[in-house]
């Protein structure tokens, strides 16, 4: 052991207009076997910077709290092994750690994700039958369980260019909430209809299927193919398919 690694960490707070103001600070720590990025951050806190801010909870990839950008890529710090990071970082270069860039800054590595909590409140909840002991097959459960494995880490939102580059937080729900909507719309017992909302308020049309969200999902959810595309198809069928519209008028379809 005794090997050292240098982290270049963003330290700072937003100014009065919300623009991040700060600097990159270098910290060098000694490595232990099997460390993940979050361990190194904790070691920096314990050794030299107690006030360095970062969120974390479970340290096992289950809660989605410790999202950050490591060497420019959005990941969970608790599930990113230093062995892999050292391999990808060029010799002699520090490891670069920044907060998620698509969200406003709170301080250091902590981003303000309150947008997500506000948006979630607008999505109508499950409407199922009153009778208890619901019956549906494991195959029906499997389809929805994939969506329900989302840990709300917001790495997908941080990566989506509609939000990151175009800042369309008011018009577009982003991958996390299309996963949530797919969960509700494909729930075997749900009787609700949220398609108009998906089309209008949540702006699913803005997604042009670049699959960046799916690439960064630490839960391995196939966001694009299993959530977004089926939702887009349902919207098309409901609102733009002439045959479906005709069938509805004739009372052949709901």
């Amino acid at each position: 052991m005794g090997r050292e690694v240098t982290f270049r960490v963003f330290r700072g707070e937003p100014d009065e207009d919300g623009v991040p103001k700060g600097e990159l600070v270098d910290y060098t720590v000694e490595m232990d076997e099997g460390m993940v990025v979050l361990d190194v951050i904790h070691k920096i806190q314990a050794e030299s910077a107690p006030d360095l801010s970062c969120r974390w909870n479970c340290k096992a990839g289950k809660c989605g709290s410790c999202s950050a950008e490591v060497n420019g890529k959005a990941r969970l710090m608790c599930m990113t092994r230093m062995a892999d990071i050292e391999e990808e970082t060029p010799e002699g270069e520090p490891v670069l750690i920044k907060p998620m860039q698509a969200f406003p800054l709170v301080k250091d590595l902590v981003a303000d994700v309150s947008w997500a909590y506000e948006l979630n409140k607008t999505i109508p909840p499950l409407t199922g039958p009153e009778e208890k002991d619901w019956v549906f097959s494991q195959e029906e459960a499997d389809r929805v369980q994939e969506f329900r494995s989302c840990i709300e880490c917001m790495l997908c939102v941080n990566t989506c260019h509609v939000l990151r580059e175009h800042n369309m937080f008011d018009e577009f729900a982003g991958p996390r909430f299309f996963v949530r909507l797919a969960d509700l719309e494909m729930h075997p017992m749900d009787a609700g209809d949220r398609l108009e909302m998906v089309k209008d308020d949540l702006g699913i049309g803005y997604c042009n299927i670049t699959r960046c969200c799916t690439d960064v999902c630490p839960a391995g959810i196939n966001i694009t193919d299993n959530a977004i595309i089926p939702l887009k198809e349902r919207v098309v069928t409901e609102y733009y398919d002439p045959l479906a519209i005709l069938a509805k008028k004739l009372g052949l379809r709901k």
Binding site: Q45, P50, D51, L52, S53, C54, D108, V110
Partner: peptide, 14 residues
Amino acid sequence: APGGGRIYNPGWHQ
């Protein structure tokens, strides 16, 4: 003595 201020300061919290 954790240092730092009142904004998101884990040292103070600890």
